[in-house]
Amino acid sequence: MTSPHRANPKTTQTCCICNKPFTLRHLRSVDHLRPSILAMLEEQEGALPEHAMICEGDLSKIRRKHVEQLLQDERGELSALDRRVLNDLSMDVSTAATVDPEVDQPTTIGVRAADAVAAFGGSWTFIILFASVLAIWMAINVVGVFKQPFDPYPFILLNLVLSCVAAMQAPIIMMSQKRQEEKDRLRSENDYMINLRAELEIRQLHEKIDHQMAQQWQRLAELQQIQIDLLESEASKK
């Protein structure tokens, strides 16, 4: 592997993976990577030079591969939702932002009409209104408001009307329920992906904290050793 060299010592340096020059703000030192990611990187690329730098693009790829490997070890084969979360995580994109538009996507006139009919058909307004129509219908034909009732007892025409209403209302309500089930499914998938994203980020955060604590303890031990050496040097002079 080609060792990194400085294209411009003040502003740029070469990535040890792609060998392309980048400004220092777009590079990370491999010395600051977590041990698990560094081990995977060295397994993939071989031994890295001391104080080597890696660009953000290659670092995102190796991080995604690392997280994907962790999920595969725990869950086996990854689902489409798992891969979508990994893609959002590697691109640093909000998972909720990519799913919410699907839940609230525009619907057709027929779907909106089905939702409106289902909402009205399941309300007390519909029950009271429909009961009133039935009562008026039967009263007109029983009391004899007209000289010749248009639907005398046993109300055959009314039965036909009710059958037609039920036959039309049932599939419309089923259409609305199907749409609601689709929304519930998308929201359930959204919750799953957000929870998985949170789990992965918390795990990475724990690894970062553990790595930083290990580095701090190492630096503290080095400082203490330097102090001990200084004290021993002063003591030997006396």
Rank of each mutant, 00 (worst) to 15 (best):
E50K: 11
P152L: 15
K61P: 01
I128H: 11
V145G: 14
T107E: 14
A96Q: 04
F150A: 09
G76N: 04
A131K: 09
K61H: 10
L89W: 10
H51N: 10
G122F: 06
P149L: 02
A80Y: 05
S60Q: 14
W137S: 07
R64C: 03
V133K: 09
D88Q: 04
E50F: 05
Q69A: 11
Y153G: 01
A97Y: 01
N87T: 15
E77M: 00
V161I: 09
W137R: 07
F146A: 12
A52H: 06
S132F: 12
S90Q: 10
G144L: 11
L41K: 01
N87V: 05
L81G: 03
S94N: 09
L70C: 06
R84E: 06
V103N: 12
D115T: 08
L59S: 03
P152I: 14
I127T: 11
Q69C: 13
S79K: 00
V103L: 14
L160W: 10
Q44W: 02
R84P: 01
W124Q: 12
D115I: 02
F146C: 06
E50L: 06
P154T: 04
L86R: 00
V145H: 04
A139D: 07
L71Y: 00
V133S: 08
I62V: 15
V93G: 02
P152V: 07
D151P: 03
S79F: 05
P49H: 04
A135H: 07
S94K: 04
L158G: 02
I156N: 03
S60K: 14
L41N: 00
L38I: 10
N87L: 12
D92M: 10
R84Y: 15
L41D: 12
F130R: 11
F146K: 07
G57W: 02
V142R: 01
E77S: 05
Q44Y: 06
K61I: 15
G46F: 03
R83K: 15
L89D: 07
A135L: 14
K61V: 11
L41Q: 03
K65S: 03
V143F: 11
E74Q: 13
M138Q: 15
P154S: 04
L48M: 14
I127Q: 12
G76C: 05
V117P: 04
R75N: 04
G57H: 02
A131I: 00
K61E: 05
M40Q: 15
K65A: 13
L59M: 09
R64G: 11
P101R: 13
L157P: 02
I140S: 10
L134A: 07
K147P: 10
V143K: 08
I140K: 12
E43S: 04
K65P: 00
R63K: 11
G76A: 10
F155K: 01
M91G: 10
A119C: 09
Q72T: 08
D88T: 08
D104A: 15
V111L: 14
F150Y: 08
L59C: 09
Q148I: 14
L158P: 03
L78E: 09
L78V: 00
Q44N: 08
D92T: 13
L81H: 09
A131F: 03
R75F: 14
L158Y: 06
A97R: 15
A97F: 09
S90M: 07
L48K: 03
I127K: 07
V93M: 14
